[in-house]
Nucleic acid binder design. Structure first.
Lengths: 194, 194
DNA sequence: TCATACTGACTGAATGTTCACTCCGGGGAG
DNA sequence: CTCCCCGGAGTGAACATTCAGTCAGTATGA
């Protein structure tokens, strides 16, 4: 096999990410995935109980690398506004450079798969969130520098526009250049700052 | 038939809206739709060429009533900020009271169906948009009261948060009361005002 | 060193199910 | 009778999942 060091299950996960992002979950037959990953159909079922489990496994992989990208050289000592704008900018940059990841996550979170996961997450977390820098940021409003809003509204005011903008960018309705990214991050900040 | 005055095709459209909103397009078999609408499978194909055409027809119906709700007692003589906040408030109110319509539209616009439509719409329109009060609003920035941003970013900064917030509200993560709606509308305005 | 036995990852044809869509027969109105 | 609307069993295609069998690799024995 010419596959350099990648385990078979990683090969399947990467092919699945690509296929799901391009065709959507329900237009991605396992047979086609097997072709793309260059494995037998049966092998997929050796590593993943069923298609659902595979979808969840892809989401874990994608979320992990997204969190890593955000955490990379993140500076917690910066003042709030800069920290926020840096996070948002980094998020937009990462997602616009990883269209497959973005398309997958969009689909995942607006499907029963992601909705269930979100539910579970919110039930399990108290004040401290594990490994989500942006949500952490909203919790730390000690300086009173942001409006007093429910957490959900902070989240909506940032992830909402970003998700719309990226969708438009991938459909070719906007060019996401440095300037537009900066404008977006600033508009998000204006929306939530005190 | 006990159906009071509703044409058969309207009966089908309403049942389709309900089913699509609850189960998603691809988990809504035509046979189930026929049961729900109390109609034979064949009759559905009498009025709609195929499932795709039916989905588009539902979207036209939903968009029409949404535009009507927005236009209702809209006052173009109000100053920009109030006009904007009124529009946003009205939109959130309408959608939160019409969960099926919201769920349908969300799904529609993040599927190939809606993406195609959006493309067609943008290609066909120049400066004046037909029948969308909110997009019209963004075009009329003559007073210089808003930041100078690309149209797409205005759209993203308003529809994005609204769509996130409504999704959370229907999943039970937030209670969408008057206050929250007001806060949202104001945050959207802060994001785009000069 | 070679021959034989064993193991389990791997494959893809076969299976049973689900679905979109067709088509023909029934029945009501004129 | 004719015309038209309607219903729902029927059809073929597509799909997720299974399983009987293959085979490369490794252990065992002489």
């Amino acid at each position: 096999m010419s596959d350099t060091g990648k385990s078979k299950s990683d090969t399947i996960l990467l092919a699945a990410l690509k296929l799901f992002a391009e065709n959507g979950f329900h237009c991605s037959p396992i047979s086609q995935l097997a072709d793309l990953a260059k494995v037998g159909v049966g092998s997929i079922y050796r590593y993943f109980k069923d298609k659902d489990e595979l979808i969840h496994a892809v989401s874990e992989m994608v979320e992990k690398s997204l969190q890593e990208a955000l955490a990379d050289s993140f500076d917690p000592s910066l003042p709030s506004q800069q920290r926020f704008i840096q996070l948002i900018t980094r998020l937009i940059n990462y997602l616009s450079r990883h269209p497959q990841e973005f398309k997958f996550l969009e689909q995942y979170y607006s499907s029963p798969y992601g909705a269930d996961k979100k539910h579970a997450k919110f039930l399990s977390e108290g004040a401290t969130n594990q490994s989500n820098l942006i949500v952490d940021f909203f919790f730390s409003n000690q300086e009173g520098i942001m409006k007093e809003l429910p957490l959900q509204l902070y989240v909506a005011m940032t992830f909402g526009p970003i998700s719309f903008l990226l969708r438009d960018s991938f459909s070719g309705f906007v060019i996401l250049d440095e300037k537009l990214i900066q404008q977006t991050a600033e508009a998000c900040w204006d929306a939530i700052k005190a």
